[in-house]
Write a protein that binds this DNA or RNA. Structure first.
Length: 560
RNA sequence: UGGGGUAUAGCCAAGUUGGUAAGGCAGCGGGUUUUGAUCCCGUUAUUCCCAGGUUCGAGUCCUGGUACCCCAGCCA
């Protein structure tokens, strides 16, 4: 795929302006900050491409930092999968992987600093009371009776929290800002809470954990992040982000900018919902090819380049939007059309017997690996007396628009000869189980002569030698949900009610050309006239298994 | 309801000092084709959420509306 320059967007414009004003010593440092509580999905890919992409084009750096401030939901499995996915997408983070938990000591010091400045206090209100005191959209909050504790008392209490001398829910550390603020995030936001949980990185060292709103700006500042890019829902948090940076003794002053998250129709991009799909068994796992996760897309056959290209093509703006799945499919078609080797696979086999082909005779036909790219070379395809064609490619009668095999008429076997269907063989129930035909030996690489009265060849169909082909299984996928916005549900319904019951169709008894013997998982092909397919990890020497990545574009009239 | 945002084609999305609506996806029409694919050519907004106003001139400026999204976790 041609490397196109990343298109401009409002964030790049901000960076250009900052650079022209000489801010941050001309440095651009971004970060991708996932919480390790689920697998990455296509929405994260947008953020990854944005953050790493900016770092690349401005010769800056992008850190990978796990935002691991909540040990209750986080797991090492997610940490591993996230790193794998970022690398697979083709990005390289600056230095070592970072963890917000690396900064817990420093964060604790800075919290103490806030207490000393009279800007933070230990609140002993219960969780329920805190919610009540916070007020709501229309009612201003009330100040906690513990708000005016002395610095000494706060210090002592915070130390008690840290030293495991209090129970969960007994106390929290809060910033002292403004309980009247129309921005609820400024009504004395909580900085630390007690959680007696073993942390995947810090073990049992801590029983208090800092909140995201406190941790994030400081982690950014500590790492020297210049542009901290996040999604729109954090916009209301920005005043507190700036408050934290201004009121603590960190050197850098990172700035937060928000962009619209990616939404795709006919799927969900919410870690919570994706986890439900996995946990409730609606899919086979986080890497189920129907999942919009990076690992699911990978198993489906998407390439890193196609995902990056897709992220580029959807752009970056501040408008809530829902991108059409067709755009994602266009991105992978574009890549695979150019790069995937071609092969023939018959999914609904129907035997075709060529009566004038000598018994036992085998001919090796030469076919290009890619018809539009001869540098990809050629392949050999064995031709024998009996071949399989697709049931869909034969009709006893059809009008002129049907460009496949019709009884009494001719069609070309792709890369091979022209055949004429002369008869059909039926089973007891009347179903056609075999087609008898003849072939014209003078049609290899050229059209039949003496065409008078014959009309044009109807078309070309794919086929696989019945004796030389390889048996395989093909898994066909459809959208996971039946409605464009699965998350939007009526009263009493859930998004699971919108799951498409027919999103997976397994085709067994398929046949693929023998050149594919022994192919490795993740190898991608275009099965000609069918679509793009990818070798699944379940594939074995005994039975090849292919996942359909996406079909070919189809633009023929359905009325024939 | 208080605060914060966003509105440009079916879907994304450019449009930056006001100068006469990019591009991609999807669609439609045609050509090439041993893949009903690809490729190629053509085509799709008299109008930018609505209504007023300023101006020679407004998607861009002003005023007033409307719709939608986010926020009331000791989640991120």
């Amino acid at each position: 795929m041609s490397e196109t320059k990343a298109p401009s967007n409002f964030i790049r414009q901000i960076i250009d302006r900052d650079l022209s004003e000489g801010k941050n010593d001309g440095q651009v440092v971004t970060r991708f900050p996932p919480e390790p509580n689920g697998y990455l999905h296509i929405g994260h890919a947008k953020s990854i491409c944005l953050n790493f992409g900016i770092a690349e084009s401005y010769k800056g750096a992008c850190n990978l930092r796990f935002d691991d401030t909540n040990p209750e939901k986080e797991e090492d499995e997610y940490i591993q999968s996230i790193q794998r996915d970022v690398e697979w997408l083709g990005f390289e983070w600056a230095g070592e992987v970072r963890f917000a938990s690396n900064y817990f000591d420093r964060l604790y010091e800075l919290a103490v600093e806030l207490i000393n400045k009279g800007l933070a206090y230990v609140d002993s209100l219960s969780p329920e009371q805190i919610a009540e005191y916070r007020g709501n959209f229309t009612t201003p909050g009330k100040e906690s009776p513990y708000r005016e504790r002395s610095v000494e008392e706060n210090l002592a209490l915070f130390e008690k929290m840290r030293a495991n001398q209090m129970e969960e829910g007994e106390a929290v550390l809060r910033a002292k800002i403004d309980m009247q603020s129309p921005n609820i995030n400024l009504r004395d936001p909580i900085l630390y809470r007690i959680r007696k949980k073993v942390h995947h990185q810090t073990g049992d060292k801590w029983v208090i954990y800092p909140m995201y709103d406190f941790t994030h700006p400081l982690s950014d500042a500590i790492e020297g992040i210049t542009h901290s890019l996040c999604t729109l829902e954090f916009e209301d948090h920005r005043p507190f982000y700036d408050w934290v940076v201004e009121n603590t003794s960190v050197a850098a002053t990172p700035r937060q900018y928000e962009f619209a998250r990616l939404n795709l129709n006919y799927t969900v991009t919410s870690k919570r919902k994706l986890k439900q799909l996995v946990d409730e068994g609606h899919v086979d796992g986080w890497d189920d090819p129907r999942m919009p996760t990076i690992s699911g897309l990978r198993r489906r056959g998407y390439t890193p380049a196609s995902i990056r290209h897709f992220c580029e093509s959807v752009g970056v703006s501040r408008a809530d939007s829902v991108v059409d799945m067709a755009m994602l499919e266009a991105a992978i078609r574009d890549d695979l059309n150019q790069h995937a080797p071609r092969a023939m696979c018959v999914m609904n086999p129907l035997k075709l017997v060529i009566e004038n082909w000598e018994e036992g005779k085998e001919e090796s036909l030469t076919a290009p690996v890619h018809p539009q790219n001869e540098t990809m070379g050629t392949r050999q395809v064995p031709m024998t007396r009996e071949v399989y064609i697709d049931k869909e490619d034969f009709r006893e009668e059809a009008n002129k628009k049907f460009k496949r095999l019709v009884l009494g008429d001719r069609v070309r076997l792709r890369y091979g000869y022209v055949v004429r269907a002369t008869d059909v063989v039926r089973d007891d129930s009347g179903e056609i189980i075999e087609i008898r035909c003849s072939y014209d030996s003078d049609t290899l690489g050229k059209n039949p002569e003496n065409d008078e009265g014959q009309g044009k060849l109807r078309g070309v169909i794919h086929w696989v030698s019945a004796s030389k082909g390889l048996p395989c299984e093909v898994r066909l996928y459809d959208r996971l949900f039946t409605v464009p916005n699965p998350g939007k549900v009526e009263e009493g319904q859930t998004f699971q009610d919108n799951i498409n019951p027919d999103s997976l169709k397994v085709l067994s008894g398929c046949w693929v050309e023998p050149g594919l013997r022994g192919v490795l998982a993740e190898t991608r092909y275009q099965f000609e006239r069918e679509g793009y397919f990818c070798v699944d990890q379940d594939s074995s020497d005994n039975l090849l298994v292919f996942n359909q990545t996406v079909g070919l574009r189809e633009s023929w009239p359905k009325d024939n």
